[in-house]
Design a protein around this nucleic acid. Sequence first.
DNA 1: GTCTATAACCAGATAGAC
DNA 2: GTCTATCTGGTTATAGAC
Lengths: 219, 219
Amino acid sequence: MTEAPAPDRGARSRDAILDTAGELMSRYGYAATSISMISAACGLPTSSLYWHFGSKDGIYVAVLRRARTALLLALPPAEMPGADVAQRLDAFLAEVKDAFERHPHGLRLLLGLGMVQQDASTAAVAEVRHYRDALLAWARKAVSAVLGLHEGSQVADELARFTLRMASGTAVARWFEPGAVLDTGPLRVALLALAAHHGVPLRGALGEDAPRHGATERE
Amino acid sequence: MTEAPAPDRGARSRDAILDTAGELMSRYGYAATSISMISAACGLPTSSLYWHFGSKDGIYVAVLRRARTALLLALPPAEMPGADVAQRLDAFLAEVKDAFERHPHGLRLLLGLGMVQQDASTAAVAEVRHYRDALLAWARKAVSAVLGLHEGSQVADELARFTLRMASGTAVARWFEPGAVLDTGPLRVALLALAAHHGVPLRGALGEDAPRHGATERE
DNA sequence: GTCTATAACCAGATAGAC
DNA sequence: GTCTATCTGGTTATAGAC
């Protein structure tokens, strides 16, 4: 057997298609990414793409779904280590920034939709909304846990949307400055100020400029 | 003369084309908006579009340029009324929100580009960058004037980018919630907190928590 | 599952009468 | 400046050998 039997050649092709399609679609958007572009970039003929995914729409849905699960897996869970708010918030923001850097396609795929309002299949529309809803749900839960908010509260919702909009804005900025990353410094200040503004008790996180060396784990 | 002579029928057609093209392109993006769509929507044959603008690219450039000048004209100038920071900031944010509501296409056109990195003409790339640079320059100048910062300072740049990213994130959110508007409440709190965090003296705008006496603004 | 070849169609763009 | 008619090329998608 000089040739690898490759019993899962199909699976590897599937992944290759999704990889290149995700790359191209996140860069050029759905409409501007053609089947032939993907085919040429990944080396497989167009008929293979159709065999695996059925249509261009099917590719988009699959790409989107994989990006969603990957991003949500990379984003920090609700339970962050740290006794006080400052510690948890710092760890949280660092992980969020890292996740968005490691999965740059994630948000850009949501931006490059452009099509979803017109001729998109119901499956594509559903997946896009699912993606966005999942991100919002994650943000609400995570922000609530980090800052100690009641998860269904108005404040939690406001802070979650604030965080997501900043992340989206950063993804947009990346069109122009490819090196742009989520600016966690200002975001940290803003989130703490918003929480304080709404009367959220923040033990040990009131020190922005004052040299407050971290209170120990005891309060 | 029952028929209007319409000596400027060409100019009115030009405007009609730009109107519908801007509408469609801001909704579907550049690539997904076809010449025939524009033609059908505005009633003029495709050859008229080519007579006026030469190419699809030319239409995009013209749409973008008009959107830029309209948005920058609607955005508040650097000189805001109000003696103290709080007054100026409130007036400023109200006008910014209003401008983004009145010109919803403005930012969305920048989002729906998708193409600009691949086959776009140099003119389109230049216009896109010009648009974005103009917005950034406006934000730096306006934020500096409102909060009393030195215009070239690091703080002014950070706050300008923060504001623009929030605006971009809001434009993205509008894909999913068409009624979404710039959330000036949280943005106000965040900007004040960021200014205070950097030691900017804010007379009369300390309504969050502790009164912070300002160090000088650092660069 | 992958390949070659091709069908059916629509895109951007042009020619020339009016 | 506007219209009808048309050309060329790329697009999605499929057929069928292997």
